[in-house]
Design a binder for these strands. Structure first.
Length: 275
DNA sequence: CACGAGACCTGTTCGC
DNA sequence: TGCGAACAGGTCTCGT
C-alpha cells in the first residue's frame, strides 16, 4: 500500500488523532501481542513483549517509508510493505482478520497492525540507524539542491525508474509516485540516468517533490480496499490509467514492464530518447 | 556495477 | 458459474 505520502499521512494521524481515535503520543504501553511471528523482525516474540511493556510513546517520526516510534528506552520501526496498515481501536475490540500485532495502552485504546500479505515488519531496537543506515536522501528535505541531485543521478548509469525506486538512492518513492513524477517531468521511464541534462534533472526533482507534496495534501492514495481516506488517486495522470487519454495531449496511456513492475506513461509526452 | 528472476504472502480481478 | 492466470502500494537475495 504505502509510499511516502501514505506513511506520512498515517504518522500525522497517529500524532494528532482523528475524529475516530485520540493521539497516541504520550500513551503508556501496557502489553503487546504477536499473532504472526514473522512480522517481528527483531527481537524474539518473548523479548518484544517484555521489552515493550511500560514504555511511553515520546514521538513518531518517518524516514523514507519507515515509521519510527521513539519510546522511552527503545525505538519501534515499522515498514508496511505492500499491504500493512495501522489502526487505533478500543482495547476491547475483537482481534481483526489479518491482525498481526497488537499493542494496548493504559487509556483504553490499542494499536493494531493489520497485514493481509504478511510482508510488513516491525523492529524493536536500541539504535534505529542500524536499520535506516542504507536509506538514500529524503526527497522533501531541501538540503539536496537541484545541482546536487543532478550530480548524484549522473553518477549512475541506470534506467531511471528503477533508480528512483531504489531506496538506497532516494527514500520514499514507490511505483505510483515514480510513474507520476516521470510523467510530470516528461521523461520516459527507460531513460538512462546519466543522460539527463541539468535542466531535466532539475525538473525531475521538482516533479518528485510536487507529486509527494500533492499526495500528502490529499492524505495519500486509496486504491482497491486497502488504504482508506486518501484522495490522491483522483489526481493520477498515468498510474492505472492504461488506455485512457493523456490529460495533456489525449494520447492513450500505455502500460509497459520496467524492472518487473507495471509502468504507466504517455508515449507522446514521455518520448524515449532516440526514437 | 547493473539487471533479471525468484522468493516472501493473500486476496481480487481477468479471461476463457 | 467456475477455474486458473495475472496482478497488487515493496524489498531481499542470488546468479549472470
Amino acid at each position: 500500500m504505502p509510499e511516502l505520502p501514505e506513511v506520512e499521512t498515517i504518522r500525522r494521524m497517529l500524532c494528532k488523532g482523528t475524529s475516530e481515535y485520540p493521539s497516541i503520543l504520550a500513551c503508556k504501553i501496557m502489553n503487546g501481542q504477536v499473532f504472526w511471528g514473522k512480522t517481528l523482525a527483531k527481537p524474539s516474540v518473548d523479548q518484544f513483549i517484555s521489552d515493550i511493556a511500560n514504555q511511553k510513546i515520546d514521538d513518531i517520526d518517518r524516514r523514507g517509508k519507515y515509521l519510527v516510534f521513539k519510546l522511552t528506552r527503545s525505538f519501534l520501526l515499522i515498514h508496511l510493505k505492500m499491504s500493512g496498515d495501522i489502526k487505533i481501536v478500543p482495547e476491547n475490540s475483537p482481534t481483526e482478520k489479518h491482525e498481526r500485532v497488537a499493542i494496548s495502552f493504559d487509556n483504553g485504546w490499542k494499536f493494531i497492525f493489520i497485514d493481509p500479505r504478511k510482508f510488513g515488519r516491525l523492529w524493536l531496537v536500541d539504535d534505529p540507524e542500524a536499520i535506516l543506515l542504507n536509506l538514500g536522501f529524503e526527497p522533501l528535505d531541501e538540503e539536496i539542491s537541484e545541482r546536487k541531485f543532478w550530480e548524484k543521478i549522473s553518477r549512475h548509469r541506470r534506467v531511471i525508474k528503477p533508480l528512483l525506486m531504489d531506496q538506497r538512492f532516494i527514500a520514499g518513492l514507490g511505483n505510483i509516485y515514480t510513474d507520476e513524477a516521470l510523467y510530470l517531468a516528461g521523461l520516459h521511464p527507460l531513460t538512462r540516468s546519466n543522460t539527463l541534462g541539468f535542466h531535466q534533472a532539475e525538473l525531475l526533482l521538482r516533479s518528485i517533490r510536487k507529486v509527494l507534496q500533492d499526495g500528502i495534501l490529499q492524505n495519500g492514495s486509496s486504491i482497491d480496499w486497502v488504504y482508506r481516506g486518501g484522495n490522491f488517486q483522483n489526481y493520477f495522470n498515468v498510474y492505472r490509467r492504461t488506455g485512457m487519454p493523456c490529460r495533456k495531449c489525449g494520447t492513450l496511456i500505455e502500460r509497459i514492464i520496467v524492472g518487473q513492475r507495471s509502468t504507466h506513461l504517455c508515449p507522446t509526452c514521455q518520448k524515449y530518447p532516440g526514437s
